[in-house]
Design a binder for these strands. Structure first.
Length: 706
DNA sequence: CATTTATAAATTTTT
DNA sequence: TTTATAAATG
């Protein structure tokens, strides 16, 4: 049985799949069957007798892990594959830390915060330190978080990082040190871990002799996907994980490294053979995805880049059709043309879901989305602003977090500020009164779990009379009742009428709790936002996702570690006959493929993004990004270039500037493309029907002279 | 004094 | 669309 699927692999693929013990590096060019190889490897290991739960598969997204495990399932014809440990570094770290946290002195019941929360916490810390007052141009909170994160993930010194990536912040090196000190202390005190902590603690776990060895011995084989997009900290984790046992397989393509902003470094994949002596290297060069002309153009784009692992990508899919480069007059025409092309391919039998529109930044598709809606083309968008990043979703999540951990100062702060009449000062005072800062420390780990411990915030909230500004009193009362009901604490008799709607029991479901919280939150959204209808719909969706969960803690953790990537993920399992177009940032398109790919905004300044062109390394990465976009296409690739961009800072202004075609498509390689110019753009000076001013004035005159 | 309102400015990519 | 700062309000 196993031979049948092994036979369908090519030589190098089979070599990788059936590799025995020891380190293995698979350099897999775009479209060379990387996912397939990994899935087969998992299947092969299992058929060779490796217990599934002793295999660790680290991927870039949870979707990728699920996909590979599903494929392995189909190959082996078993269901055991589901026991494979699969997921992102962060998700696996989370799981391991729940098991082994105590060995690190990590109190149980820690919560995980995302990058935006970390930024908020840095902001709070900055204000407490009075750093905001001293200097006008102290970095924004997002910048602070980015600097901190890079310091942790790159394992470089702060000063080097500032010089290299934030030279304008170098003068703040000292206050930054103080801030980061206070920030880490605060996280520890509050028992929260950010994304960086998850990796950091995982690495530390392996420095411990007991628990570290235990974790390492858990896995017979470690497999890592997209290795070119891992960072120094992740490489150290792997070293710790494979100190004795060197069964490790990493797969990647240095030409597709596009996450250096997250401190990913190609050095990982380049240095892998040095870190694991005796590494066997397999190179996959046959591209099964794209046609020859698409591959030829993609290779030409990458030719000027300095690559270390030379690959010679080749395809056996001849085609007469070169990639098409469309020059459009402006963005409006680009949108029209994209819709027209999409519908044309749909007519010819390519489903919408087999087509994708790719772009550099999330907002690049804004105008297109309007046009798609007008043309009644359904679509799902990946990347860009995430569902969980929207203010209203964060608000509701903060309410939920308080229920989970009443010592979560960040969530309390956010929630209290929602109430009209409460500002930063009152919020701090109320939190002080509730004892939010008196978190049960390491001394009494059990205290975090017990709701009714004598001085818990819940007790304070239920029993003590808090000083609340008069204007805020009513709404604060509602908040108080809502929260207490959700945790099943008795509320004071005064508010008992609320109980008529639903008898409160201790074990209300997550969805039921969200519904209760929503009732409190609804009037706030309505007062705050004009588009509250849409926002409330989001919250209903949140409720639907929650319905699939039994544990509130699990729900929150999943939502922060693996946020829904598109609106599609929110709707639950997709209907079979539902067809929709894919819109995606290039970053989110990694690892995907489509029959027809449309790349929009192929203009210098868009790609390469003009924020990345300051140094050569930045431009290099943008080039790889463009390469990734091109190599997503199987049969047909369209690249669109709008000539003219309007500056829409001023409403209805006609101010515009002319763009240049992306530098990654120089005229030397135009022979590899089919150049098409839109009718409108082909005539630079269209004989515009000019207004006859004399005639107009004559007509106008009638207004005052009958 | 704390909070709200007004005003100006900035806005890549993601676990 | 959100976020930091300045002025106005209670």
């Amino acid at each position: 049985m196993s031979e049948s699927w092994l036979d369908s692999l090519n030589g190098p693929q089979r070599e990788a799949v059936t590799h025995g013990a020891g380190p293995l590096l698979v350099v897999a060019g775009a479209g060379t069957g990387k996912t397939r190889t990994l899935a087969c490897r998992v299947a092969w290991l299992i058929e060779s007798g490796v217990p599934p739960d002793r295999i660790l598969l680290l991927t870039f997204t949870r979707r990728a892990a699920a996909e590979m495990i599903h494929r392995a399932d189909q190959l082996t014809g078993r269901r055991t594959t589901t026991h494979v440990w699969g997921g992102t570094f962060h998700a696996v770290a989370h799981r391991l830390l729940r098991f082994h946290g105590q060995a690190l002195g990590l109190p149980p019941g820690f919560s995980v915060i995302d990058a935006a929360d970390a930024a908020d916490l840095l902001n709070l810390t900055r204000n407490d330190l009075g750093l905001a007052k001293k200097d006008r141009r102290f970095p924004r909170k997002e910048t602070l978080q980015a600097i901190y994160s890079r310091t942790v993930n790159s394992t470089d010194k702060l000063t080097d990082i500032l010089t290299r990536h934030w030279p304008w912040c170098e003068e703040y090196a000292d206050p930054l040190r103080d801030l980061f000190d206070a920030f880490t202390r605060r996280k520890r005190e509050r028992n929260v871990l950010d994304y960086d902590d998850l990796l950091l603690l995982w690495r530390e776990l392996h420095a411990l002799s007991g628990a570290g060895d235990e974790v390492a011995e858990r896995f017979d084989h470690v497999l890592v996907d997209e290795y070119q997009d891992t960072n120094a900290l992740q490489a150290e984790i792997l070293l710790g994980l494979r100190r004795e046992n060197h069964n490790i397989m990493v797969v990647g393509d240095d030409a597709q490294s596009i996450y250096s902003f997250r401190a990913a470094t190609v050095r990982n994949i380049l240095d892998f053979p040095k870190q694991f002596p005796g590494t066997h290297i397999v190179t996959l060069e046959q591209n099964y995805r794209s046609t020859e002309p698409i591959l030829a153009a993609s290779n030409a784009v990458m030719a000027p880049a300095r690559e270390r692992f030379t690959k010679n990508l080749w395809s056996q899919r001849p085609s007469e059709q070169k990639p098409v480069l469309y020059t459009c007059m402006d963005e409006a025409e680009q949108c029209r043309l994209v819709c027209e092309r999409i519908l044309a391919h749909l007519e010819m039998g390519t489903l919408l879901r087999k087509q994708a529109v790719l772009f550099r930044a999330g907002h690049h598709s804004d105008q297109l989305e309007v046009e798609l809606t007008r043309c009644k083309i359904p679509f799902h968008k990946y990347g860009g602003l995430k569902f969980v990043e929207a203010a209203h979703v964060k608000d509701l999540l903060a309410l939920l977090r308080i229920l989970e951990n009443p010592y979560d100062e960040l969530s309390w702060f956010r929630v209290l500020l929602l109430i009209e009449g409460i500002g930063p000062k009152s919020a701090r005072r109320i939190m002080e009164a509730l004892g939010v800062h008196r978190a049960p420390g390491q001394s009494s780990p059990a205290g975090a779990v017990a709701d009714g411990s004598a001085r818990s915030p819940w007790r304070c909230l239920a029993e003590e009379s808090l000083k609340v500004p008069p204007a805020a009193r009513e709404m604060f009362g509602q908040l108080r009742t809502t929260l207490l009901q959700c945790v099943g604490m008795p509320t004071a008799p005064a508010e008992e009428d609320d109980d008529l709607t639903r008898p409160t029991t201790r074990g209300t479901s997550v969805a039921a709790q969200i519904e209760k919280l929503r009732q409190f939150y609804e009037p706030i959204v309505q007062a705050r936002y004009d588009n509250w209808v849409i926002r409330l719909r989001d919250i209903e969706q949140l409720e639907q996702i929650a319905a699939r969960y039994r544990s509130r803690n699990r729900f929150i953790a999943d939502l922060t570690l693996d946020p829904p990537a598109s609106t599609a993920d929110l709707a639950g399992p997709p209907l079979i006959d539902e067809d929709y177009l894919i819109l995606s940032t290039i970053h989110s398109a990694k690892g995907c493929e489509w029959d027809v790919v449309h790349i929009i905004h192929a203009a210098d300044g868009m790609i390469p993004s003009d924020m990345a062109t300051e140094n050569e390394a930045g431009v290099d990465e943008e080039r790889r990004l463009f390469y990734v976009a091109m190599t997503r296409a199987r049969d047909m690739l369209y690249i669109y270039f709008p000539l003219r961009y309007y500056h829409r800072r001023v409403y209805l202004s006609d101010a515009h500037s002319y763009a240049q075609l992306t530098r990654f498509l120089p005229s030397e390689i135009h022979s590899l493309l089919e150049l098409r110019t839109c009718p409108a753009a082909s005539i630079p000076r269209r004989p515009t029907p000019h207004i006859d001013l004399d005639e107009l004035d004559r007509r106008l005159k009638h207004r005052w002279r009958e």
